[in-house]
């Protein structure tokens, strides 16, 4: 009898532990729904889904990198370069506006991967340097203006281009559909392909993966290319939203993406976690500023940052407590 109840208890703890991010998300939504009647309206939800689509894509790519035991700080810069490329390429040949940013993202990702595998530079510092370098490249590509502030410029785009971000299908915005599709592909890749599994093995122990006969370098290259590609896709959405060149548009996105992955239950040490859960992290981080928007009655704008930070802290602390309870 005793063992039965014990098994049930560990089972419950296991579920709560593995579904921690989901629990957090539900709690957050319930609170939001009760406190702010405007939260659960379809208009608001559609808005949220548009807003999270870009950094959701970044977080998906980042999840692969972090699972493999690495990190990529250059995604924000890649996204902004990709957005500029999309707008510039669209001037010459319209369909290129869709393909070019993703290709550019993959190419920069490949360069990251090469620095990390063949160059032997730790991922953190390699991608940090690339974050600076690629952002510099963004200004170069933007062309006009000496300073960041002057660099924003509106570009004439084809009529269909803004629809990528603005349009919807049966009420579901295109960006949300893109994100959901990407999520589905990511889950299948991580669970049902040899590459996907090798990412976990490499993240668990690179040495062991090598000795098991896996091609560690290839795996890491692919991971950074995927991450770059996702950042490129996010850049495409950004371009479609802004319809303008702004090299400073993505400051801090990389950190939000990393936070989303970690809140989604993938530790920075890699090798552990579920890609699918990243979406919970993305949603939690997407809902927080939305909540603050509802909160803002008479608060000065800088309270946003503070409240975001504190909510993030609450989430992280709760997770750490849940994890502790589980191991006891």
């Amino acid at each position: 009898m005793k063992t039965d109840s014990a098994t049930i208890k560990t089972g419950v703890i296991d579920t709560v532990k593995s579904q921690g991010p989901l629990v957090m998300l539900v709690v957050l939504c319930v609170i939001a729904g009760i406190c702010f009647p405007a939260f659960a309206t379809s208009l608001n939800l559609v808005n949220i889904s548009r807003q999270i689509s870009m950094f959701g894509l970044l977080a998906l790519g980042m999840a692969f990198v972090i699972l493999s035991g690495g990190i990529d700080l250059s995604v924000g810069s890649i996204a902004v370069v990709a957005s500029i490329v999309a707008l510039q390429a669209g001037r010459w040949f319209a369909p290129a506006a869709v393909v070019a940013p993703i290709l550019v993202g993959v190419a920069i990702g490949a360069f990251n991967g090469a620095l990390i595998t063949w160059g032997g530079i730790p991922p953190f510092i390699a991608t940090l340097a690339m974050m600076l370098g690629v952002k510099g490249l963004a200004f170069v590509l933007a062309g006009e203006g000496r300073s960041a502030a002057a660099a924003e410029q509106v570009v004439n785009v084809s009529g269909w281009f803004p629809v990528i971000f603005r349009g919807d299908c049966f009420g579901i915005p295109y960006p949300a559909i893109i994100l959901i599709a990407a999520l589905g592909v990511a889950v299948v890749v991580s669970k049902y392909t040899s590459f996907g599994r090798s990412v976990f093995a490499v993240g668990g122990s690179e040495e062991a993966a090598r000795m098991m006969g896996l091609n560690v370098n290839k795996c890491k290259m692919l991971v950074y290319m995927i991450c770059g590609g996702c950042a490129g896709a996010a850049g495409l959405l950004l371009a479609s939203r802004l319809k303008a060149i702004d090299p400073t548009a993505t400051g801090g996105w990389e950190l939000t993406a990393i936070a989303a992955v970690v809140i989604g239950g993938i530790p920075l040490t890699g090798g552990l976690g579920k890609i699918g859960h990243v979406i919970y992290g993305v949603l939690i981080l997407g809902i927080i500023p939305n909540l603050i928007n509802h909160l803002r009655i008479s608060l000065p704008p800088w309270y946003n940052e503070m409240i975001t930070g504190m909510l993030l802290l609450a989430v992280v602390l709760l997770q750490s407590l849940i994890a502790k309870r589980g191991t006891r």
Binding site: L115, G119, G120, I121, P122, I125, A126, L128, A129, M130, L132, G133, V134, K135, G136, L137, A138, F139, V140, R146, S147, A148, P247
Partner: peptide, 23 residues
């Protein structure tokens, strides 16, 4: 321009680490 300095910094950091790496 500032952004050239950014690229320049990136090149220096990567260059230093490529020289120092342990094989």
């Amino acid at each position: 321009r500032d952004h050239h300095a950014m690229i320049f910094k990136a090149v220096i950091v990567i260059g230093v680490l490529l020289v120092r790496r342990e094989r």
